[in-house]
Design a protein around this nucleic acid. Structure first.
Lengths: 213, 213
DNA sequence: ATATTTGCTGTTGTCAACACTAAATACAGG
DNA sequence: CCTGTATTTAGTGTTGACAACAGCAAATAT
């Protein structure tokens, strides 16, 4: 069902890794040669990236990596807040105790390892808390909305150069959110998520503004 | 930027008009011949419909009109409620008095005409209240989420055969929602929207269940 | 009688050549 | 030296032919 996955993933990750910077053009022929496939396939991939709004296309001019404006970034954080709050409310209704404990354990494990050794080379099981939260909602339509904005949120994280520094703090906040779901406190979850995202938003906006001046 | 718009629109509307029923296959070659264009173009259109989840594609099997399950329908109404409430809150912050009055006038005009003559043949200016509401939010990311689920909501309306009967009632509810935005009452708007969508949801689910048995 | 293979048909997936557009460049006239 | 106009060029947009695949039915073997 998804035969272009690898090429798509590769190009998308290259965009997210800033190999192709915002504003730069994605040319079909070089890409086709690089991956050893035909232009038609590259076209499909670009169409998909265009749907995710990671690239913009202009007739007869080509595809260009989107550079996210401050307005769009604000919008994205706002939407993200809405989606996560909704996810938490649905999670309270639809998640099982086992699922919640599974995530809690994963977060704990991760926290212990990172606390001991910030730059461990051992494999740390990757748990994207936000993805897990949406899974708990059991609402596929909601999940697909999340998947629609997730790539751009990643792009923001990259562009604003906010890497690991807030990580441990963030992990603790995730655990609190999880706890409020576990204890059926939708309002608490809502407030925690709002605060959590507010911090991420401020951090992002500050470093965006800093890098612009 | 959108050269396939006409063919896309035609096929989409055919789906929404039940010319292609849920589950039936969209074959590339017949469609290409029908519209006098190449298969490649049809493929692009199908890809787009697939993104909107109006059709599902299976490798080497083709594209099929999606048949919306009850679960998906419930999900869609739930998401719609979330989006419209968000839109109303943003509209309170970002809409101008002029915009609101413009919509109010359009609704009034429509109400007067419909009240006088339910089956008038005169042209009634088309105002989709929900589209207008999202425009007022001034949040393009939110608007594009709405556009993402709107086609499927239309499909639900068609499938569940809920045509004009609730129309006048609905118009009055729209006016109330608008008023609460005008008067800066987010909580009132939220409650009105919830109630409004609840009615639409019940109406849809009832007629879906009726048509299934 | 049943299971397996084989070939056929309808459909989608892939590609490479061709058509078209817009921007960059060269050029001529003032 | 500047300005407006051909010309070239580098890219995307489009197409039709061909390859690959799944489903089915008939033929064959067990």
């Amino acid at each position: 069902m998804d035969p272009d996955k690898t090429v798509y993933t590769a190009i998308r990750d290259d965009i997210l890794a800033m190999k192709y910077r915002p504003g730069s053009q994605l040319k079909e022929i070089p890409l086709a040669e690089e991956f050893g496939i035909s232009r038609g396939q590259i076209r499909k991939v670009i169409a998909r990236l265009s749907n995710e709004q990671l690239v913009e296309t202009h007739q007869y001019k080509g595809a260009f990596v989107t550079s996210l404006s401050e307005k769009v970034i604000e919008e994205l954080f706002d939407i993200r807040e809405m989606l996560e709050i909704k996810a938490s409310k649905l999670a309270i209704r639809h998640s099982t105790r086992e699922e919640l404990e599974g995530i809690r354990n994963a977060l704990d494990r991760r926290e212990r390892i990172l606390f001991k050794n910030k730059f461990t080379k051992y494999y740390i099981p990757k748990i994207d808390f936000h993805n897990e939260l949406f899974k708990l909602s059991k609402n596929n339509t909601l999940i697909s909305l999340w998947e629609g904005i997730h790539p751009r949120l990643k792009l923001i994280r990259i562009q604003s150069a906010m890497h690991g520094e807030r990580y441990l703090e963030s992990l603790k906040e995730h655990k609190k959110i999880l706890l409020s779901i576990y204890e059926n406190h939708p309002k608490a979850a809502e407030d925690l998520i709002s605060a959590h995202i507010q911090k991420a938003r401020n951090s992002a906006m500050n470093s965006i503004r800093a890098s612009e001046s």
